[in-house]
Design a protein around this nucleic acid. Structure first.
Length: 420
RNA sequence: GUGGCCGUAGCUCAAUGGUAGAGCUCCAGAUUGUGAUUCUGGCUGUUGCGGGUUCGAGUCCCGUCGGCCACCCCA
């Protein structure tokens, strides 16, 4: 019989894996809070219509969707933005603007998996709603850069490339491109970086030469220059670069768009986002109109890059190690002392120590081995010495006999000595 | 969704078509109650699954499932 495996593209997180995942969550949370963002959450399952309304029926092919027992067409969320637009539209009056909200949703898509792209992933999502000024764009891009810095990436490791949809719309208009061809043309531009020029030129036809001029750096955008200056003022210029070749695939972007990449260019985008001033209006059937800008950073590519950049990896491992350690291991040398040991275990745990002990009788040697393996700083041995116990400092190997009443004070001494 | 490559123990990998192995991990021991190293012993496989060719298949062929890569798409 073949054992049941996880579904393709879905992950099991063993304790070590989840400790690393927690590290990512914690960094996301800390940096977002540093920027004054507040956390929110929405349902992982939504009406399929929420997504088709925005992107058309073609999107269903990429959705993890099904019909529920109430005959509702539903889909696991592929992204958070439509949910955000819905939530914001229906609670429009309850909050002062601008909103600075972030979330760490579990997202899903029904696509063949590859490196850096599974059927399930977590992503960090941050949005500023109700502020149309460029300062909001800059604030959000700065947040993106600082997230990357917080993970231990330098300007030599990552870059955030910034572009502007508005620039391209102006261009298309000036070239008399009919509006129904805009999206198609933008997608060709988006892809141009990953295919030969000749192929792109064929697709673009008469537009090829003017587009190539822009991609080769001859286009200029006063808006992007201002954004870049504002990021330079913040000291983040090394991490960002204006690049009109970025347009992003999604149709709903209306202004600044940006994507973060590894400098080596080996991986998929680490993060991406942009301004979507019309989406809330559109999804709320015109009930609410709010300018907005947001971006998302996925955990899968991020984790791959962390593993490739030694400084980032070392930082993660250092943070992850304590997640599996305990402070004190209780050695029960004589089973008749188990009840006394448990009373002390409870007392130490109440005090906030991480304490573990053998659930079943075991040889003393095994117990010390377990203490070592769990990274305990101290061990307390309960045995024939009762009502005294042996307190051992597992770093120095030094041990002494102390009355059971003063175990806590003794542990505090040991910990004071080793926690600077 | 299309195409190419791959699939052997928990992990990393061996095995000219001729009896499926090693290292690591894990478990148990090495005289009474102390962490490392070492030593000894032990467990684990319908070779992803199902067919076919053959005296004989881990090996060759077909299918299927899973993984990797490219395409498609990109939230």
């Amino acid at each position: 019989m073949t054992p049941i495996q996880p579904l393709p593209g879905f992950r099991d997180f063993l304790p070590e894996d989840w400790a690393r995942q927690n590290y990512i969550f914690k960094k996301w949370w800390e940096v977002a809070r540093r920027y004054g963002f507040v956390q929110w959450e929405g349902p992982p399952l939504e009406p399929t219509e929420l997504y088709t309304k925005k992107s058309g029926p073609e999107i269903v092919g990429q959705l993890f969707n099904f019909t529920d027992k109430g005959e509702r067409e539903v889909a696991l969320r592929p992204e958070l933005t439509p949910t955000l637009a819905r939530v914001v539209a229906s609670h429009d009056r309850e909050f002062k603007k601008p909103l600075k909200w972030f979330s760490m949703p579990h997202c899903f898509r029904y696509e063949k998996q590859q490196r850096g792209r599974l059927r399930e992933h977590f992503q960090f999502n941050a949005d500023i709603i109700g502020e149309a000024s460029l300062d909001a764009d800059v604030e959000l891009i700065a947040l993106c850069v600082d997230l990357l810095r917080e993970f231990g990436f330098s300007a030599n490791d990552v870059v955030v490339r910034i572009s502007d949809r508005e620039f391209w719309i102006d261009f298309l208009r000036a070239q008399n491109v009919p509006e129904e061809k805009w999206q198609e043309t933008l997608q060709i531009v988006d892809k141009s970086e990953r295919e030969p020029r000749e192929k792109t030129a064929t697709k673009l036809g008469p537009l090829a030469q003017p587009v190539f001029k822009i991609l080769d750096g001859e286009g200029s955008s006063e808006k992007l220059d201002r954004a870049f200056d504002a990021l330079r003022v913040r000291g983040l210029a090394d991490f960002v670069q204006i690049d009109l070749g970025i347009v992003r695939g999604l149709a709903y972007y209306t202004g600044i768009v940006f994507e973060a990449f590894d400098r080596g260019g080996k991986l998929r985008a680490l993060a991406g986002g942009g301004r979507y001033d019309n989406l809330i209006h559109q999804l709320s059937d015109g009930a609410v109109s709010l300018p907005a800008i947001g971006f998302a950073m996925g955990d899968v590519v991020l984790a791959e890059l962390i593993n490739e950049i030694p400084a980032a990896k070392a930082k993660m491992e250092l943070a992850v190690a304590p997640q599996r350690e305990v402070d004190i291991y209780i050695v029960i040398a004589k089973e008749e002392r188990r009840a006394d040991a448990l009373a002390q275990i409870q007392s130490l745990r109440d005090r906030g120590y991480r304490v573990d002990f053998p659930l079943a009788p075991a040889k003393v040697g095994k117990q010390f081995q377990a203490a070592e393996q769990l990274g305990a700083r101290g061990a307390i041995l309960f045995g024939d010495e009762w009502p005294e116990v042996k307190v051992k400092d597992l770093h120095t190997g030094e041990q002494r006999l102390v009355p059971s009443e003063i175990i806590r004070q003794t542990m505090e001494e040991i910990f004071r000595r080793f926690v600077p």
